[in-house]
Nucleic acid binder design. Structure first.
Length: 420
DNA sequence: TCTGGGGTCCTAGGACCC
DNA sequence: TCTGGGGTCCTAGGACCC
């Protein structure tokens, strides 16, 4: 008996989360902005219809938004993360083989059965999540992950399917002929341009393309996409996520920054965030990379990013130690007079904390680890940043804009919704 | 004036070794 | 005159994803 893949995708996820606690938003055009209130990262169907594009810079569609009184929110990731957890937990109760693929998507693997039974199963999942969490989802079925993705798109776009769609065996090619090649999962703009030079514009044409040519021009990944379109499953379900390999933390500044002191404060804050995440994952880092970026969209000289990585002699998850190492690297990268738009840190070479090899010359400081543990507990209980390193600064005049944020309804005691 | 943030995998090329 | 070949490891950059 074969198996079948299904992709569950939350519709307009961030917008749906905002609507959950704000019924006034139902049926209204709503958008959610990226971290710096920079561009559009989620749109309700009404907003899509107005022609607001995904990833579009906010300032460029501002007039359209004002003209149609579109509701605008800064992103509220603690809220979205919490709602996501509820969706995934419920799905895990309904289906045994689930891979959480992203904040708003999960793959499911099921035994093949009749189309009618699969559709009923899909509708049950959709109804349960709608009823118990309040988030609308779409579900697509297909013989491979890539085909399930395509089925999901159809489930979402063609309303007559009511959110659940199974790719038909008969007439599949006709359907693939209607899917643009850059809508196929794994085909980005670069690959699409390459494929266009060969006259390949649809998923069907990619499916029938020459393997040798694909291997040469799109690499092993491109060939794999074609195989998946042919129904040959190359991408397995990954139910237990492997340990992470890197942790990044960065933000764009609210305005250009030139002073080393400001950069140091911002960097310390991001290092603190990354280190807390590292400890939460029970890992230590063996290397860190710092980078500085100037104007990311300058027409004349393009974007300039200076980065530098250092290896640590001994893996650590100690915030003060990481802050001081990061500050030393920053000082070497910094050029006076340059105006910077972004600074960031990446922790690399992660390893499980329990496997850490103590150094002969510098035994692990038990008290320091306990201190970090206490810090994490306090910040978890009383809110992030209750206690932080003085290096992170207090003025924070580099801090980015987030002027339209909704409350952390479900994750902060201070911001619980009030029923009157 | 104003353009996010956090990830993964693949590949080519250099360093190094025998 | 004539200057090997193959393997491994590491890294930076590219491409893609949500």
């Amino acid at each position: 008996m074969g198996r079948i893949f299904s992709l569950l995708d939350c519709n307009n996820f961030y917008v749906s989360c905002e609507r959950l606690f704000n019924p006034r938003l139902a049926d209204r055009p709503v958008v959610v902005l990226s971290n710096n209130d920079g561009c559009i990262i989620a749109r309700s169907n009404e907003a899509k219809k107005l022609g607001i594009g995904m990833g579009e810079p906010f300032f460029r569609c501002r007039r359209l938004i004002e003209a149609h009184r579109v509701e605008v929110f800064s992103s509220n990731f603690p809220l979205y993360g919490d709602i996501s957890r509820r969706v995934m937990e419920l799905l895990g109760q309904l289906e045994p083989e689930v891979e959480i693929y992203s904040i708003d998507e999960a793959f499911i693997r099921l035994p093949a059965s009749s189309p009618a039974k699969l559709l009923i199963n899909g509708r049950n999942i959709r109804d349960a999540i709608g009823r118990q969490v309040g988030i609308p989802v779409s579900i697509g079925f297909g013989p491979t992950k890539t085909l399930a993705k395509i089925a999901n798109r159809i489930a979402k776009k063609e309303t007559e399917h009511e959110g659940v769609f199974l790719l038909p065996e008969q007439g599949l090619d006709d359907l693939l002929a209607t899917v643009a090649v850059d809508d196929v999962w794994g085909i980005g703009p670069r690959s699409a341009a390459r494929l266009a030079t060969r006259g390949i514009h649809t998923a069907l044409a990619l499916k029938n393309a020459d393997d040798g040519w694909l291997r040469r021009h799109l690499g092993i990944t491109g060939l794999r996409v074609a195989m998946e379109l042919r129904g040959v499953s190359c991408l397995p379900l990954v139910s237990a996520p492997p340990a992470g390999k890197s942790i990044a933390s960065s933000r764009s500044f609210g305005r250009p920054v030139t002073a080393l002191a400001d950069l140091r404060e911002a960097l310390s804050s991001y290092v603190s965030l990354a280190a807390a995440k590292l400890r939460h994952q029970r890992q230590k880092t063996g290397a860190l990379q710092i980078y500085l970026a100037d104007n990311l969209f300058s027409a004349d000289h393009g974007r300039q990013v200076d980065g530098m990585a250092v290896n640590l002699t001994q893996p650590t998850s100690d915030t003060p130690e990481l802050i001081s190492r990061a500050a030393a690297v920053l000082e070497r990268l910094y050029r006076p007079g340059r105006s910077y738009r972004k600074v960031g840190v990446v922790l690399l070479d992660l390893s499980p904390a329990c496997q850490a090899q103590p150094s002969l010359f510098q035994p692990p400081l038990r008290e320091r680890e306990e201190l970090m543990g206490a810090l994490d507990r306090i910040n978890r209980r009383w809110g992030r940043d209750t206690i932080h390193s003085a290096a992170n600064g207090l003025a924070k005049n580099w801090k980015n804009k987030q002027s339209r944020k909704s409350p952390a309804y479900t994750t902060s005691w201070h911001e619980l919704p009030v029923v009157v």
